[in-house]
Design a protein around this nucleic acid. Structure first.
Lengths: 238, 238, 238, 238
DNA sequence: GATGAATGAGTCTTCATTCAT
DNA sequence: GATGAATGAAGACTCATTCAT
């Protein structure tokens, strides 16, 4: 229409380099910004305007990547859930007795709770989601609960865990872990790893049978001896 | 339920006392309705209109009793906190070792979590409050946390609790308890009392020293021996 | 309903009654203003802000009376439809042959088309309505069409109307009438009544059998002899 | 990805003619798609995105062919108007009495109403156009109205049409015809041709003087004997 | 010529809160 | 003390349009 000569002028400062980041990177950037803001201020108080501002874009630009505010919320949650699904799958595939799996789960879950996306799993309210997404979330939550109970049940069966009510035990453990998502502050005294080690031990010592069961706690792929092993034998007996 | 006509007939000029009482009753009714709705739907999704509707009054009528929606939220929280303050004071005043106090605290706290006002303590978001009220809430929360740590420290000092990090122990215990506020459903299989008993035992067994320490768990005013006493000694050794 | 003491204070100006009336009056005022604006500018270009401005209120005030912009649109349509339902019922109940009914229908319909709410029947787009409301509208439109065909069929049966295809005849007549809603301007040369008279004659003369059938055209309640009766027989031949 | 190699191979410098032709074809394709969508969903509900989608191009690409959405709307209308201008010119140039011209006009207009671009003449809202374009449209509409009146007046003058008010007669006829644009459905029972025949007869029979005037109705350039000629004489009575 | 990304302008809608009665 | 009505403030979302590539 105008044959814009503009094309000829090869701009030396590549003015749009900033904007040319890959689409997926931007999507992710939105999610990272959003999850932070949502955690900081709460979903309802956080406005898309502020999300956009932090990203140096305008509000409608967000709609290039997400369908709605709720969509963003859901995707934040989904990223967190992905992590969980990941380590649950790894643990499921590992060769450990029930107690070992439970400890690995606690450890990984604790670490996850110390991440933004992980915390979003317990600090976002499913009622803010569309019915369909809320259903997905609730199903996933049930799945996590079942995993806790499953490992406990397994442990009881294989003798690594003392007989107890898996349901209540799971509730108690999950509660402690979820709570991390509320109190953990990045940059505080405690590192996620330290918290995870502590909780892995603390939340399972009461369940362990008296036999030798202080071994790897972290995820199977990376078994380390860790300081946790150095701890004073918690149980022992005789 | 209200019997108001009775009041009218007995005296054409509703006495002062009656008025005050009626006012307080209504205030309370508002809070009971509000806390339920807020828990049900979340503070932001719940509208004053619906609160009013459930009370068969109109929205502006609420402003006769409360200054704002936030005021209602805060008062709900305050009622829950009152309960907590109450049993903490009672436990503080009781003669028990640290472990005993901790158990009593866990028990009472668990029971409270199963009430609407109790659950509001952990399910309401302080960021929805005015800065001034938020400050109050945060102070109270710190107070509770300090109480947990205090009892643990006491227990360590008096030998009833094994040496451990009071901070982490408190976090773990509080997390399990707070979680009750999220999963407990009135009318479910578990009664608040049963939950409280279970948690009082479960959350402290790992901390107890091996000596005789299975005794009263419930609030000092009403010490009972309970089934929990019948449990197999959790601590092993010797 | 509730016996609230308020009733005891027999207000001389019946404040409540006034309020109710005022409410209905306001509702109507909103609809009158809205239908005008919608016709003037079209539904999409018209904003609730402007509706409110013309009423000297603010936009959210409209929501005291209507649920949504679409609700207003639908109610405008409904008022027009009411008129139509009214005169169709009257004509149905009248003792006339088919041609007489058809003429009465044409007359009344033409008059209605010259009113705002009447014009809204043909100038508003059902696709702007919710699926549910759109269904209602479409059903009503079919009803009107059926009525035209019914009277024509009746007329053919009773000999007052020449054999013809009722469907096409109805389309042709309805088209002419609906068009009025587009060109009629209040305050123009032609009065609604004059238009109605003219169309009642014009649109039916081609259908009438050659026999005496120039009689009352207007609605049964007010039969007049009219100029139309003076017209030269339209068909005849030789 | 582009597949255009065909063009590229035949000639590295795509000839000018080809380019122009390709451009015009695309422009037309846009208009055909747009007019359909606009009729389907209404101008305001239809988005350029959807227009583009149906064409398998992207939204901004449309701006290579049109200046704005409104421009597209106007061009759609213009194509319809071209048809009308065409047959009016033809009829004007034909040798017929007023009634003959009117019939021809009705017939052609009816046929046009059954096309997308024709329907756009009466289903698009001039208020959606820029003031300048709206003026053009309104002038054209007046032109059509004047043509109807002109033929009627001619017919009255030449004795083929009974004395009557040309203005009202034109309104009635135009209304019936415009209505076709609203109810005609491609693929329905009635073909455009059948509708045109029917309306040409139906809408003029009331105006015709009693003399012989049942003859060709279709456009002069292509006078056919048609079924319409075969029709039973509409006027009865020997 | 075509595209992905971004934007500005605008609208509906919600809701806590106030006010006259 | 209670009510109907009204409002102000705010936020999500849409979409035609424009850049730079």
């Amino acid at each position: 229409m105008d044959g814009r000569p503009a094309n000829d002028t090869t701009s030396p400062w590549m003015p749009f380099e900033n904007r040319r980041r890959a689409r997926d990177e931007k999507r992710e950037a939105v999610l990272r910004t959003a999850v932070q803001l949502f955690l900081e201020q709460g979903y309802h108080r956080a406005t898309l305007n502020e999300v956009a501002e932090r990203l140096n874009i305008t509000k409608p630009a967000l709609y290039n990547y997400f369908r709605s505010k709720e969509d963003i919320l859901f995707e934040c949650w989904a990223l967190g859930q992905e992590q969980v699904d990941g380590f649950i799958a790894a643990i499921d595939g590992s060769r450990q007795n029930g107690l070992g799996k439970l400890r690995a789960l606690v450890h990984s879950y604790a670490e996850t709770m110390a991440t933004d996306f992980g915390a979003s799993l317990v600090r976002f309210d499913p009622r803010d989601l569309s019915p369909s997404n809320a259903k997905t979330v609730r199903a996933a939550k049930r799945g996590i609960d079942r995993t806790f109970r499953r490992y406990i049940t397994e442990g009881i069966a294989d003798g690594s865990i003392k007989p107890c009510d898996p349901k209540m035990a799971a509730f108690a453990i999950a509660g402690s872990l979820n709570w991390i998502g509320h109190w953990y502050q990045r940059g505080g005294e405690l590192t996620p790893d330290a918290i995870a080690d502590d909780f892995a031990e603390r939340l399972t010592e009461g369940l362990a049978t008296a036999t030798v069961n202080k071994r790897p706690i972290k995820q199977p792929p990376a078994p380390r001896t860790k300081k946790s092993a150095a701890r004073a034998p918690t149980t022992k007996k005789k």
